[in-house]
């Protein structure tokens, strides 16, 4: 089915900066600053069905995220799949967290804390790499 904007699509190379922000309703700054490139996003299993209440105001991109995140996916992977900049993607994910549709799992902040990953993590990564 054709979307109403089809045919209006301007391929004006001068405009790519603005257009993605129409998806976010003009918002250019994520409300939450806790999402990182590798924060893992997962759909909450009891999230409402695709056409259930609370899903109506969602953009197609929101729905795409919900479909993608049936398996845990990193913010960077979602941005890559949507072909949207990371900052725009974070805004959309923030909406879904706010609405209770997805949960996010942040990484451990080793480097920023000046610390090292725990030995059990290092051992698991080493064992996993050896199998490559």
């Amino acid at each position: 089915m054709k979307h109403w904007t089809e045919g209006f699509d301007d391929d004006d190379a001068d405009e790519p900066l603005v257009r993605p922000y129409t998806i976010t309703g003009g918002r250019t700054t994520p409300e939450r600053d806790d999402l990182t490139l590798i924060t893992l996003v997962t759909v909450i299993s009891e999230a409402p069905a695709d056409n259930g209440p609370g899903m109506r105001r969602l953009q197609p991109e929101h729905r795409t995220i919900l479909a993608l995140c049936k398996q845990p996916l990193a913010v960077a992977e979602i941005a890559s799949a949507l072909n949207l900049p990371v900052s725009v993607t974070k805004i959309l994910i923030g909406d879904l967290i706010e609405a209770g549709h997805v949960r996010s799992r942040p990484p451990l902040a080793f480097a920023q804390a000046g610390g090292l990953p725990g030995m059990s993590i290092l051992e698991a990564v080493r064992d996993g790499l050896r199998k490559l």
Binding site: I44, S45, R105, P107, L108
Partner: peptide, 13 residues
């Protein structure tokens, strides 16, 4: 993660 309703692994980089 042991949160109910979600099974997310830990991501490292």
């Amino acid at each position: 993660s042991s949160e109910p309703g979600v099974r997310a692994p830990l991501a490292v980089k």
